[in-house]
Design a protein around this nucleic acid. Sequence first.
DNA 1: CCATAATTCAAACAACCGTTTGAAATGTCA
DNA 2: TGACATTTCAAACGGTTGTTTGAATTATGG
Lengths: 224, 224
Amino acid sequence: MGRMRRAVDHPAATRQQLLAAGAVVFAARGYREATVRDICREADSNVAAVNYHFGGKDGLYAEVLAEGQRQMHVLPPAKVVSADPGERLEFFVRGFLERVLAGAPESNHAQLMFREMIEPTRALDRVVAEFIRPAADELGGIVRELLGPGFSERERQLAGLSIVSQILNYKHCRPVIERLFPDLPLDAAQVGPLTRHITDFSLAALRGMRAVRAGSRRSKARKN
Amino acid sequence: MGRMRRAVDHPAATRQQLLAAGAVVFAARGYREATVRDICREADSNVAAVNYHFGGKDGLYAEVLAEGQRQMHVLPPAKVVSADPGERLEFFVRGFLERVLAGAPESNHAQLMFREMIEPTRALDRVVAEFIRPAADELGGIVRELLGPGFSERERQLAGLSIVSQILNYKHCRPVIERLFPDLPLDAAQVGPLTRHITDFSLAALRGMRAVRAGSRRSKARKN
DNA sequence: CCATAATTCAAACAACCGTTTGAAATGTCA
DNA sequence: TGACATTTCAAACGGTTGTTTGAATTATGG
């Protein structure tokens, strides 16, 4: 009777299908709202499969996230893309925006990490350490070059936050933006225009910070 | 046929307690994760009280949100605070940041609306129409003044989004920021410094946009 | 080929959820 | 006070959740 069973070359097949289905469902609904029954239906396997192969919902989630981090580390280096920090910033913004505006099925693992930021689970510490921290360091280097000397670590941190916030906003506040500006489509076609805006906006802001700092130093020198 | 509503009697105590408890628990855990039992325990009332007084969890949530909007409309006008658009922007940013960085018990209703942005329920449309849209219009007016003519509606929208995103980021990504920069406390004491940074950053960016636009027009005129 | 281990499966379990129920308690007013 | 509406309450209901169970099925190695 059961000859129409799914073709399984080797026993690890269900495991992989669960990982894939987990990435899809977790990315779509988040850890809490995703149900193991939905995941198993998506994976064409039994409800008990998750517990058998991963020890539970937590275990599957951790494995999906770890797989995503492994897969994410094949990121473009972006450090050697150009010597001009302005171009490096544009490259950074574009790469980020592509993941933010990508449709769900194309980058489930990235969507998962974006979810971790606003709906944290126990896995957030690992996500920060292995994914966010490196990105923050890279952006920090670019900001440091663009601002030049005379700025504190704190000031550079705030500038970096101001830049990434503009990108993440299109992910985190998507429902609001769609209602507020229905004529602003948030799809892959907008990566170019939004990259240009955010890069120009941020470069102008950093130049402004630099000019103000230089100006105040000049006036201080004048006073002496 | 129900008896006429009591006009001079003591206000329905349990109803008010449920509203207060709902604001606390919904703000702390979000609509989905908040349980009716938790709310009723917080309100010292029976589990059935929510259904009796509000028809269900949905009804209570809607009432809490409506109460918040009513309470929110007692906002400072901010339009007549100054004729200088730069000062108006600073006022806007500060007012927003105060709510973002406020502790939970002080501004539960504001926290609720921030939650609606990233974890929308059916109530988001009302929140956008009655709370977010007016704020966006106010910011849009400030941006219009600061940018001057020669910019499209779309460009002004993106500039506005770039500004509010910097503020909202401290709410939505708080868990990440706390892990990334543990020495950056996100409490009411930081309203001042963060207001100054975001305002300066944004004003410089808008000035830069304006300068680029003016420059390109000059060069175009040169070409003719 | 067969014993043994690994894997799948339907079914059930315990805990929690929002909601309902019907009686008890409380309040209201002739 | 007495009759009636309103409100409270413990208990239970139906549904969903993650997880467990134990037998059936499949793969593996001697």
